[in-house]
Nucleic acid binder design. Structure first.
Lengths: 133, 133
DNA sequence: ACTGATTTGTACGTATGTATC
DNA sequence: CGATACATACGTACAAATCAG
């Protein structure tokens, strides 16, 4: 299963294993269950989950278990049409952006903000393509 | 300085303080120094640094101290009109992007690529604003 | 509305490994 | 080679959010 002496860190090995489970359609148990199943500290399990959050595969909420997201929306690139008057700005994620998009602290991902008619919407820059309609 | 009983987590409070120091042009000492200065555990300091890494303010390397990156501040913002058929993608800079834009190796800046009619042009994401014409 | 159990969030400490100087 | 500094991983504890009854 997991080799503690491997070159690849435990939390990455675990993330790989959990990724396979998610791909197989399985839900994720609590961090405590996972830590007991693999004999790994809960902190390490949490770090593995951080990786999956960064991949857009799951989200975690306080007091609630990990939630597996739809894989179609997970890594797919969304195409957004820009109508006349749309404005686009790009930035690195603010704390608010990370909260809204479920980005981990260490993920460096461009944020795209599209504003039209005073309303704005943000996207992960690596998962959006804009076309001027 | 830092209020452990605050609603705002310690690592976020610390991240805010360190962000101000970076803005003031100060370098960051080691995690051990920071933890001793503020009386905070090193793990918590490390998490605060994670916040700054995610913001693109610093980078951390194994065996080396935190490195404050150069920030794009005060640069002029260029407005680019997107005509019909334009496509926009966003990414973090490749080596080629850095060469073309003269970006320092340490600068973490989103790159905006505008493609129209097979020709593409890249911009620094923090110095460009796109408007759909 | 309240209680208790579960689960995640935060924070501490400690130890060891690895990279850099 | 030794000293410094970050990376990983363990354990522990308590707070906060959620949920089931």
């Amino acid at each position: 299963m997991i080799n503690p002496g491997s070159d690849r860190p435990v939390f990455r090995q675990l993330a790989d294993l959990l990724r396979e489970r998610i791909r197989a359609g399985q839900p994720l148990p609590s961090t405590l269950h996972i830590s007991q199943e693999f004999g790994i500290g809960r902190n390490t399990v949490r770090k593995a989950l951080d990786v999956l959050v960064g991949d857009g595969l799951i989200v975690v909420r306080n007091g609630y278990g990990p939630v597996v997201l739809e894989q179609a929306e997970g890594g797919e690139v969304e195409t957004v049409r820009l109508y006349r008057g749309s404005e686009v700005t790009v930035r690195l994620p603010t704390e608010q952006d990370r909260y809204e998009l479920g980005l981990p602290l260490t993920a460096v991902v461009p944020i795209v903000e599209v504003t039209v008619g005073g309303r704005s919407k943000i996207y992960r820059g690596d998962r959006v393509r804009l076309t001027s309609a």
